[in-house]
């Protein structure tokens, strides 16, 4: 039962990633693309945690933590770039 649920939820997240990709391609503004990328980061974390559950190995946790941190830092860096035209002043 658990295995099937993991597969079904992975499929749902796959659909979410496709929807994000559509928003990423379409825009219309650069901010929409950033928001889409940020959501893709979150979905990717979920996918990695699910892979960990499916494989029964807790090793994927570190990968998820890294993606969470990189996602936040890169999103705020791009926002800062839009706000100021520069990242480190």
């Amino acid at each position: 039962m658990l295995e099937n649920t993991v597969l079904a939820v992975s499929a749902a997240i796959g659909v979410s990633l496709l929807l994000n990709l559509w928003r990423f391609m379409k825009g219309p503004h650069m901010l929409d693309r950033i928001l889409a990328l940020d959501t893709m980061y979150i979905n990717a974390i979920a996918l990695i945690v699910l892979l960990g559950i499916y494989m029964g190995s807790p090793l994927y946790y570190e990968g998820a933590l890294l993606i969470a941190m990189l996602g936040f830092v890169s999103t705020s860096a791009v926002c800062k770039f839009i706000l100021r035209g520069d990242i480190i002043e």
């Binding site: 939820v9 997240i13 659909v15 959501t39 979150i42 979920a46």
Partner: peptide, 11 residues
């Protein structure tokens, strides 16, 4: 899974 899907549908 449901809420992640809802978030993406909203986007």
């Amino acid at each position: 899974g449901f809420f992640l899907l809802v978030g993406s549908i909203g986007l």
